[in-house]
Structures are given as structure tokens and as C-alpha cells.
Amino acid sequence: HRNLAAGAESVSQYLENRPEDRILSVLPLSFDYGLSQLTTAFRVGACAVLMNYLFPRDVIRAVEREKITGLAAVPPLWVQLAQLDWPAGVDEHLRYITNSGGAMPTSTLAALRARSPRTRPYLMYGLTEAFRSTYLPPGEVDRRPDSMGKAIPNAEIMVVREDGTPCAPGEPGELVHRGVHVALGYWNDPEKTAERYKPAPGQPSGLPITEMAVWSGDTVKMDDEGFLYFIGRRDEMIKTSGYRVSPTEVEEVIYATELVTEVAAVGVAHPVLGQAVVLVIYTFEKDESVSEKLMDECKRQLPAFMVPARIIARDEALPRNPNGKIDRKKLAGELAEMFEENPS
């Protein structure tokens, strides 16, 4: 309970929530980011409007009808909302939007800002094990749109090497979160708890009680000013030709073309490469030349080892997990035997 109260206090502080706010809650309450919409509202005495939507258009209509001041969503939903027409004047009451659960494509962010110019975007990063970790202030979005920001109030975020020593600026390392938001562990799962909850780096020896921190498993880097940049989740990194490829980097190139509605880059077992990069795309418009155009763009912008081996076009939206994120594991499972007979 202390974690929930501390998280609500920190988030409501940087979002500047107030009793007059009307926060639209469209994410599952089983998702910590979704539950945060309620706890944040409760913390300041604001109104939380619960919604179980069927179509993305319904969300936009609810924002207008309910005079919503704050809206939180995950990247797949933001991509859909950015492709819709928004009512004129919605930014007269929609004070802010927030994103977590994955990186928002820069082209999607630009489209959202064009549709609601006075609405402030907060780009955030969070861990289920520690509520929320970082946020990028709206005033920094133009300067560093690909940054995940700095630590939220009452948290300390470190970037460390495998031995726990601090990384130099620009050096990739593991994100470690310490502070009041860190939970005690996983319920009835001591093995998983020991894997993620370890002593916080840099503690003096001889302390009677060791402070535990969350070792995220995510690879990030920090610049000279302390702003953080997401590289990839360790369990989602694609290992191809001896390189590690972040799916997000490949997907960013694809979203920037504005040729697709959704895209996911996954690693598929390959007899020569170890894993091959495979793109799965979905687009409203059925254009057989889209895959060819996307491949040309990848070859133009990406190094050879990051260029997809294949592009798979689907006739329906990509599968989601219970939190509304694209289900990469399911997609990878469906494509697991793709290169067994024909690796070329």
C-alpha cells in the first residue's frame, strides 16, 4: 500500500494534478499504468472517468463529451488515435496526455501535437516492480523527443554495468531503480524475486540492512545532462549476425514512413544468422507495394545487419496482450518455423 500511495504522490506532482481534473481511464486496471489513473485521481481528489471502449474513435468522443483534462495510453492506442480527426478546441480542456508501456514513435507524437497543439505530452517509462521510473518534461520534448527523461520525484535511477559500477555518459547499461516505489518482490515467487530484486549499487559495506533495488533487465544510456534513452528490453533484443538489435529502432524507421498502421519487429530463429529480423505490419490500405517501399527505406536508413529478412503483411490488427501492448511473443511463436526449410 505504501508503494501505491508513494507512486500516486510522485506522479500527481509532476503532472500537476488538481481536484478540477477529469482523467479518462481506458487502460485495464490490472495494468499498473491503468490503475495509476485511479490512484492519481484519488490522491488529489480529482474525477476518474472509467471507460471500456470498443473503437479508438470512442475514446476521442469521450474526451470531448466528458471534458477530459488528462488521458493516458500505450503506443499501439496512440498510433490509432493519431490517425483520427480530433474535435476542434479539444485542447481547451485536454491539458495533458501521457505515454508509457513502450516508446511512442516520433511521427505519432508529431501527429498528436498537431491535432491538439496546447495539450502537453508526457513521455514516461515505468516498471511493474516499481510503479513509474522516469518522465520527460513537456518542455524537453522538442529538444530530445527520443528521450525517456529523468527520474520521477522520490526515485533514483542508475545506469550500471554488469558488476554494478556506474556507466559513463553514452555507455549502454542496465537501468536500476531504487527508492520508495520499489515493491517487496513477486508474490509467492522467490526465484523471480531474486532475479529482479538485488542490492542497490554503491552501498557502503557493513550496513545492518541491505537496501534492495529493481534491476530492470532493460538496456539504456544516459547523456551528459542526465537524460535517459531507451535501447531495448533484454528479453526482446534480436541477436542477429553477432549483433544485438533493438526492435524499437527498426520500428521507428517504419512508423516514420506513415505507410503502416502498426508494426512489430521480432527475432525469428535462423540457421545462419542465429536470429533474423522479421517485420510484421498491418495497414488499412491494401497496397501490395508497401512491403517493397518499406524494405527500400530500411536499406536506405539502417545498417545491413538491421535490415529485415522478411516483411509479413497481415489483414488484421496485430495481437495484443492483456495490457494493450502488441504481443511480440505471440507473433514470434507464430513465425518460429519460418526459416527451417528455406533460410534465404
Rank of each mutant, 00 (worst) to 15 (best):
V245Q: 09
L38V: 14
P204T: 10
L27G: 00
M237D: 07
T165K: 00
D235M: 07
P75F: 11
V11Q: 02
L273Y: 14
V245P: 09
E236N: 10
V250W: 06
P87N: 11
T108G: 04
P117W: 11
T134I: 05
L71S: 06
I231Q: 13
G34L: 07
E162P: 01
A336C: 09
R113T: 12
T119W: 00
G126V: 09
V11S: 03
P137L: 03
L127V: 09
I326F: 08
G102A: 14
D287Y: 06
P322M: 15
E156N: 11
A313E: 15
G139Y: 08
N52V: 09
S133Q: 11
A114E: 15
R132K: 07
E341L: 05
N342S: 06
E225D: 15
A72D: 03
A256L: 04
V159C: 10
A183V: 11
T98A: 12
S36E: 08
E129A: 08
E297R: 14
E129D: 14
N17S: 15
E340G: 00
W187P: 02
L24Y: 02
E211D: 12
E252M: 11
K198A: 00
G242F: 14
W215K: 00
G101I: 10
S10T: 01
L207E: 06
A6Q: 13
G101E: 10
R61V: 09
A155T: 05
G206T: 05
R95M: 07
T240R: 15
E288K: 08
A256K: 07
E16Y: 10
S246K: 05
P247A: 07
L15S: 04
F305V: 15
E340L: 10
G7W: 06
R300C: 11
A5N: 13
D21Q: 05
V26G: 00
T210A: 01
P303F: 14
N154V: 03
V182P: 02
P56A: 06
A200R: 02
L207G: 01
E236F: 04
T106P: 00
L136S: 00
L4G: 04
D327F: 09
V180R: 15
A103F: 06
A72G: 05
G101F: 10
P204D: 13
F230V: 03
V280T: 09
A264Y: 04
S344T: 03
P76C: 14
K329L: 05
T210K: 02
L127F: 13
T39R: 06
P138V: 02
V176A: 06
P19Q: 14
P208F: 01
K325W: 03
T108F: 01
Q275S: 13
N321A: 13
T69C: 08
N99S: 12
R300H: 15
A82V: 04
A111L: 13
F230E: 01
S147F: 04
R57K: 10
G126Q: 11
T283H: 12
G102R: 11
V277W: 07
L24T: 01
T283Q: 13
L71P: 05
G126W: 09
E292W: 04
I157G: 02
L273I: 12
E288D: 10
D146H: 12
D327W: 07
V63I: 15
D142M: 02
L335M: 12
P28M: 12
R328E: 06
F131R: 12
R2F: 14
I97C: 03
G226I: 13
M104H: 02
E292T: 12
Q275E: 15
P145G: 06
G170N: 06
E251S: 05
I68E: 03
L279H: 02
I311R: 02
S10F: 00
I281K: 00
